[in-house]
Design a protein around this nucleic acid. Structure first.
Length: 592
RNA sequence: GGUCCCGUGGUGCAGCGGCCUAGCAUACGUCCCUGUCAAGGACGAGAUCGCCGGUUCGAAUCCGGUCGGGACCGCCA
């Protein structure tokens, strides 16, 4: 070892001892005959001092050193003179008097500050990630992620889970997100896909009798990145046999409440974690991952407006739809622009429009006020509990569309109006999801994944009569309005699986092509099983309170999927293309 | 595929038709300095304002395009 101690260890108990430290120059303070350097490594910061008259060589070396040079310092730990201790530094009681200073490596002037917490352009940060990682915030996020993952492993292994890796070159499947594909050399014209999740493998491991499995798995999807989703992310993938959903939920709640207790900056508002059915979540919040940090709820105005003269509402009600309402506290003074913004949001979820009622004193201001009787206005105000100075919003549509349209508006209000309780994390379970849902084209699709088990025998029967009402054994875990993980108990009988495929319009041949291995496995003694896929990046974001997924990843790509560090993607050798039987048709774009 | 925001010395920002010969902080360089810890002091170097084109007597500033970054919609569990 080049060092005897780290820069975080210096303390009064080492006083008088000779130590050797290695690290980066964090900051230099040159007083002429007396020079200080803060030497930094992953563990901390130690002040190194040299005096010209006591050790001219060491003093000169410290004086020549610059920020981010890598030094090896031999010296003696001593208690700092009275009055010069630094209580803001963990090692501030002591300093190292340098006797020998070796420059292991000089450094160019860094492209941005390591010793200051200023915002830096992301392109620069990722290009010089090796410099950025030395910054305290980046280092702390890497540490957090390491500790969380280490804890997950320890927790699950102690409870009998085996960590098993599954392949990352798999079969492409056209459903879901676009796959990343990898050409095959032995089979020219065929391609591997990178997994979007280890879904089929995990179930097959259960058929293999391995009982309890988990993996910290890399997952890939080739869809346009956003602040909270990128090409590659890491998932805690977990599956267990001979369980029903209560068992999986108990296992995961145990793990996650412990993770939040150990690593979160603020406590969970309630444990055990409250539960809510999907139906209740839509009814009260218009979304399947409600943000419970603020209390506003949707209300139903259908009955109150059954005979209204406002035709846009009346016709919807007459044809079996609903009018749903929402109060926006204190926003009776909302501008046209505010309301247009909310309306545009509501329209993204299918609303035809958004009607507002501003209550000021006994007055009501609304573009459609003249269509409502005073009784109806009063009923709207009573139902939404709009007080003086509040605004009420209403949408008429099918019950579901009206609800989710207001749901996205509600979701926006938390941050926009600063309503959210930021002192706690609000976790909850959502259960009893629909098994299938309508596609915009009028067909059917699974709402979670194709292997998700129906909740009861009745729900299987409902597929024949009223598919939309069929519930599943899916469960989601939501914190502060974000899905932290989701999972389900699986179908383990081929007949049931085929019944679900039939509903989705997946032919037997199609199913055999896409999921043949798993379907075959179901015929060789598949146990009941259930599990989850849990985003590790998102978990770390929530724990750290950042909205930027790239910050919790070691080497992130930009929003256009470019890696500024490695300058990737890149062209490949023509010979390699030949071997793969590929010809590039698109013009390769030049990159600055 | 689309919408919006940003691009000014190494970094972070200001300037938003002429007062800009582009300002501030910090970093950087040289010198001074024996107790600092965002050390202090003096001096200095460093940008043709992302790029291309246009409007104008005059453009960092206005307009169009383009490239790069970010946020979002589409897409996506």
């Amino acid at each position: 070892m080049l060092r005897t101690h780290t820069c975080g260890e210096a303390s009064a108990s080492l006083a008088g001892k000779e130590v050797t430290l290695c690290g980066w120059v964090h900051r230099r303070r040159d007083h002429g005959q007396l020079t200080f350097i803060d030497l930094r490594d992953r563990y901390g910061l130690t002040q190194v001092v040299a005096h010209e008259k006591e050790n001219a060589a060491a003093h000169a070396a410290l004086g020549d050193a610059r920020n981010e040079w890598v030094l090896r310092v031999r010296g003696t730990v001593r208690a700092r003179p009275e009055g010069t201790k630094n209580p803001r530094l963990a090692t501030g009681e002591v300093e190292v008097v340098a006797t020998e200073v070796t420059v292991l490596n000089a450094s160019k002037t860094p492209p941005f500050y390591v010793n200051e917490e200023t915002e830096v352009d992301e392109n620069l940060r990722w290009k010089y990630r090796y410099v950025d990682l030395r910054r305290e915030r980046s280092k702390d996020l890497m540490r957090l992620r390491h500790e969380v993952v280490a804890y997950i492993r320890r927790h699950l292994i102690e409870r009998g889970f085996w960590e098993i890796e599954t392949p990352t070159l798999i079969r492409s499947d056209p459903t879901g997100a676009r796959d990343f594909i990898v050409p095959s050399r032995y089979y020219p014209g065929r391609f591997w896909a990178l997994p979007q999740s280890p879904q089929q493998y995990k179930q097959i491991l259960m058929v293999g009798g391995l009982d309890k499995y988990f993996q910290i798995a890399h997952c890939y999807r080739d869809e346009d990145p956003r602040a909270d989703r990128v090409y590659e992310h890491t998932q805690l993938d977990l599956e267990m046999s001979f369980v029903d959903r209560e068992d999986v939920m108990a296992t995961l709640e145990g793990l996650y409440t412990e993770i939040f207790r150990m690593f979160a900056r603020k406590p969970l508002a309630k444990t055990p974690v409250p539960r809510m059915t999907y139906e209740e979540a839509i009814r009260r919040f218009g979304i399947d991952r409600p943000d419970l940090r603020f209390a506003i709820e949707l209300v139903d105005l259908t009955d109150a407006l059954r005979s209204t003269g406002f035709n846009a509402f009346r016709s919807v009600i007459d044809s079996g739809g609903a009018v749903r309402g929402l109060v926006v506290p204190g926003k009776a003074d909302a501008t046209r622009k505010d309301i247009d913004g909310w309306q545009a949001l509501a329209k993204t979820k299918g609303a035809k429009g958004l009607v507002s009622f501003a209550f000021a004193g006994t007055e009501v201001r609304s573009p459609v006020a003249k269509f409502f009787t005073p009784g109806e206005i009063a009923a709207i105000r009573a139902a939404t509990k709009a007080g003086d100075g509040d605004l009420a919003l209403a949408v008429a549509d099918t019950y579901h569309t009206a609800s989710v349209s207001l749901g996205v508006v509600r979701e926006r209000l938390g941050p926009e109006l600063g309503l959210a309780d930021t002192a706690k994390h609000y976790a909850l379970w959502i259960t009893d999801f629909p098994l299938v849902e309508r596609t915009p084209e009028g067909g059917w699709t699974f709402s979670h994944n194709p292997f998700c088990a129906p909740l009861t025998e009745q729900d299987i029967a409902l597929l024949d009569t009223d598919p939309e009402k069929a519930k599943s054994k899916q469960y989601d875990f939501v914190i502060d309005g974000k899905e932290i993980f989701g999972g389900s108990v699986r179908i383990y009988q081929r007949a049931v699986q085929e019944r679900v495929f039939a509903q989705l319009g997946v032919s037997k041949e199609d199913a055999a092509t896409r999921f043949g291995a798993l379907l075959d496995a179901l015929e060789y003694g598949a146990p009941p099983s259930g599990g989850v896929g849990a985003g590790v990046d998102r978990l770390c974001m929530t724990l750290a309170g950042t909205e930027n997924i790239r910050e919790v990843q070691s080497f992130p790509k930009t929003q256009t999927g470019y890696d500024p560090l490695l300058d990737a993607p890149a062209a490949v050798d023509a010979k390699l293309l030949d071997e793969l039987g590929l010809r590039v048709v698109a013009q390769p774009e030049k990159r600055a």
